[in-house]
């Protein structure tokens, strides 16, 4: 089976997410007016766009939290429109989601939060689950001592890391990150950038994220889609997008922050980005 990887790579149309002609309305407000989007397996994919451009709604449509008014969504080869409960649950186990505010349960400790998907979906014993939770915690860069803390006792950066650990615990093929660096100080945000790259190198999930963080966009993502006016107005790597004349995109890149991030990315690209991107290892793919 492994030999087939070579063929899939050459065809290069191994899409884990395919959204076609998505239309979404809230009352009279049209959020998506025929959005088309494809995400290739193993990519780090980002969706950007101004506030109100429907990024979050698009993400919610990918993770079965919202049904588009029309159009088709295909996740991991499964059409979402006619999905029964069992299939939906199987699909959910193959996706990990990290919410913007963490979405950790306030009444459970960090390690209980991380162990929850395991307790629900596997028949491992409690001691093993606790050990696994500790290991995942360490992998996301948290101290073992934070295992017994409650989410309310965590700082912003720790909260994101704990949420990331929970999203990763079932080794998802698809990892969704909603604003992974929003509300963090630059140091913590840099830490999250590095963490995403490191986890992507180990587990090779396809990562889809929403972000406004230009540093994250330049240094981590391989493919970016820009939403505007209810459509995908451009899609490509950051380097490609930065050459486009479209005014909405220009606004994004030509601001002071945009230029600074681009400069910094150029400095860092030798030291850090290479580690994860340039070694060509197959994306995580079941056979």
């Amino acid at each position: 089976m492994r030999s087939e990887n070579a063929t899939t790579d050459t065809i290069n149309d191994d899409y884990v997410i395919q959204m076609k002609h998505i239309c979404t309305r809230f009352g009279d407000k049209v959020v998506h007016d025929s959005v088309d989007l494809q995400v290739r397996r193993g990519d780090i994919f980002a969706i950007v766009g101004g506030s109100g451009s429907g990024k979050s709604t698009l993400l919610r449509e990918m993770i079965l939290l919202h049904k588009p008014d029309s159009g088709s969504v295909n996740i991991l080869g499964t059409e979402l429109a006619d999905l029964d409960d069992t299939q939906a649950n199987e699909l959910r186990q193959r996706c990990g989601v990290m919410f913007q505010k963490g979405g950790l349960f306030g009444t459970l400790t960090v390690s209980e939060n991380i162990g929850l998907p395991l307790r629900e979906h596997s028949d491992l014993d409690d001691a093993t689950i606790n050990q696994i939770a500790l290991w995942k915690l360490e992998q996301t860069g948290l101290h073992p001592e934070s295992a017994t803390l409650y989410p309310a006792e965590l700082s912003g950066g720790m909260l994101k890391r704990a949420a990331m650990a929970r999203a990763l615990v079932l080794d998802p093929e698809l990892l969704f990150l909603d604003e992974p660096t929003a509300g963090l100080d630059p140091t913590s945000a840099d830490g999250i950038d590095a963490l995403i790259l490191q986890l992507h190198a180990v587990y090779r999930p396809t990562i889809v994220m929403i972000t406004h963080d230009l540093d994250l966009l330049w240094q981590v993502t391989q493919h970016v889609a820009v939403l505007g006016g209810g459509k995908v107005i451009a899609s490509g790597s950051m380097a490609e997008l930065s050459q486009l004349p479209n005014p909405i995109i220009r606004e994004y890149f030509d601001g002071a922050r945009g230029r600074a991030a681009q400069l910094q990315a150029a400095h860092l690209s030798h030291s850090r980005t290479n580690v994860a991107h340039d070694t060509k290892v197959d994306a995580w793919k079941p056979k």
């Binding site: 492994r2 390690s111 500790l134 290991w135 360490e138 001592e145």
Partner: peptide
């Protein structure tokens, strides 16, 4: 064994930790 095995093995912590 599949190559994923090696890759994940390399990322494992050196010793299994004690449960708190």
């Amino acid at each position: 064994w599949p190559p994923e095995y090696q890759r994940i093995l390399a990322s494992l912590p050196p010793r299994s930790q004690q449960v708190v």
